[in-house]
Design a protein around this nucleic acid. Structure first.
Lengths: 347, 347
DNA sequence: ACTTTTTACGCAACCGATTGCGTTATTTTT
DNA sequence: AAAAATAACGCAATCGGTTGCGTAAAAAGT
């Protein structure tokens, strides 16, 4: 099994009696090379299956056509849809995508950021881990003029692009919807409050209650660590052992919302009559659970595409000053049976 | 915003009065450098935040610590779990993971394989697109002694590692289970038959029927293109407009199985009493649908981890002859309410 | 005390493409 | 016809580590 040597521009140069520079330029359609020569070289390259070594090009140009991605978990719908969007947009422009996941650990996030830096990515797209409070490990990129785009879970202050949704308004609308459906005591499944998305969702929830003159009862705000299925079940039980349990739940994600639906049905509650529920994200399970879960559409894939475009723009306008620039993407409520009470239709 | 220059070993060399070779060796704990010098250099490197340029190393060594991944769709549970497993295992060993998705198009698959080759990946893990019948585009890797691992959807003949499950036996067991539950007319949702996983599942289904002396009725075998939710609904309708509709369905994936459940419930059928259903994959929706879907556990994450280990082994034992070597991973039935008839318990 | 080995490092080529600058040969301009 | 401009290409340095080979000094062996 002898390794066939890969063809280089030098091999082509020797064979065609041109210099390596001419080969290189011809392959890039550089204008200083005559049409005839260019065609001849490109033909030969193609026939012999020449494949450029992008490692060499990256080294020379001191930057690679690669985008580094740093997300909490790839296997969650948000993570995989985000990455799918990034991949789609990146590949269109000939960029590769290197992925990494922090598993919501700051230690991993730091280690991964170093690995991505070492491979000299041309840009980085990151969604912060649950544990991340300090973002110094992203400074190395800024120092090198490598564009950083934070998406969804973003830091408070960092001079870079942000691609987010309006969590506050979405949460406000979701809560308002439950109120319109007649809910008087609405619980909220909240996440860690140092993460922007969860604190904003809580804020929207609280403000909606206030707006409609409903009391804000801290007893009804459940702070979860991971908003997992198990946590959802566990805290739903707690909630419905209260003296006066809630008649509505706004959950910060679909997983916990679905687990609440399943738990409550088993306990004999009617959804949405006894308890109206709305989630967040529009994960696949939300349309499968019975009754189907109302939720907030989360444009993960599109956020990935836009984040990538931000990186590529910067890559073109080399040296553009990086400043904080925020793109807010649209979301909307997806109303399904878990929150739509018949009475509404009768009204 | 002037770009800080990145520190190189040459900078360190100048500053510490050593040659670049010594710096390089010291950082790698090469034995030919004295302990004292090694410590001194490592200390200085750390203090000044030296970060190796892995692009340069890759060029020189003519191979990168990078694994290329080629899957049909990242956003499907199988794709994202596979990638998650790959990422986890690769990062442990300091390898990066470059991803790409074919969206089940052979054209994309070929283009992506070229892109991965151009970036000189150290190995490649691929799951074939629906359209792939010819795998010549993977020869370039073999020619360069770059290890290729095919996973799940694999070609018939290709001298490389394969990581698969025993689709035949899993399908046989799933069908057998339906028969044990009393089904006499079992339909099968099949995928494209040139893809190993789908033809094997069909084969297992057919052999189980034969084994139990049930007739194989081609009318009950539905060949779908994508096994999507929509296709599932569409063909379930066809199936239940037959003169004598089936009393059981073995679907090649969960998505179509779930769509059948939903369609059939809406049409007034009882699951599993009228129709017992079993799917394949154990996607999250399968445990959420009502009744919960029986299915075949598919170890996507573990398959990713094992595939990665195969690549890394080869990377260590440089020049190992690449031969066809197949790893078959365990699966098992997950039995839930969609297929468990009460009568069984009464027997 | 002299030879052999080992230790500790430096030299310089190399990986493959890119690019600023320079050099002819050919055209165009005046 | 001489000067200027342009076209078409080559030279050689460069990107940042890596590594085979060479060498001087120190240690070990006889």
């Amino acid at each position: 099994m002898k390794k066939k040597k890969t063809l280089t521009i030098h091999d082509l140069a020797r064979e065609l009696n041109y210099s390596a520079s001419t080969i290189s330029r011809a392959l890039k359609n550089h204008k200083s090379i005559s049409k005839k020569t260019t065609q001849l070289i490109q033909k030969a390259a193609k026939e012999q299956g020449y494949r450029p070594n992008s490692i060499a090009a990256s080294l020379r140009k001191n930057k690679s056509k690669t985008i580094g991605v740093l997300v909490p978990k790839i296997s969650r719908p948000f993570g995989s849809n985000l990455i799918s969007g990034i991949e789609t947009e990146a590949r269109k422009k000939g960029f590769n995508v290197i992925i990494s996941q922090s598993n919501d650990s700051i230690t991993n996030e730091i280690a991964n950021s170093k690995a991505l830096f070492d491979s000299r990515v041309g840009g980085i797209i990151a969604s912060l881990s649950m544990e991340t409070q300090n973002t110094d490990h992203f400074n190395q990129f800024v120092d090198q003029d490598i564009p950083v785009v934070f998406v969804d879970r973003v830091p408070k202050d960092f001079p870079s692009y942000h691609v987010i949704i309006d969590n506050y308004t979405a949460a406000y609308r979701a809560t308002e919807h439950l109120i319109e459906q007649g809910c008087k005591r609405i619980a909220h499944f909240a996440g860690s409050q140092h993460i922007n998305v969860y604190s904003e969702r809580r804020r929207g929830y609280v403000d909606a209650l206030k707006k409609y003159n409903l009391p804000v009862d801290e007893e009804l705000i459940i702070y979860m660590n991971s908003l997992s299925f198990e946590e959802g079940q566990q805290y739903t039980e707690v909630l419905y052992n209260l003296a006066s349990p809630p008649d509505g739940i706004f959950s910060s994600n679909d997983t916990a919302a679905v687990s609440a639906i399943i738990y409550l049905k088993k306990s004999g509650y009617k959804i949405p009559e006894d308890v109206a529920i709305i989630g967040f994200n529009d994960d696949p399970i939300s349309s499968i659970v019975e009754p189907p879960l109302s939720t907030v559409y989360h444009p993960a894939q599109k956020m990935g595409e836009l984040s990538t475009r931000r990186i590529l723009e910067h890559s073109v306008n080399e040296g553009t000053e990086i400043a904080k620039e925020i793109s807010v993407m649209d979301t909307h409520l997806i109303l399904r049976a878990s929150s739509l009470r018949k009475s509404t239709h009768i009204d």
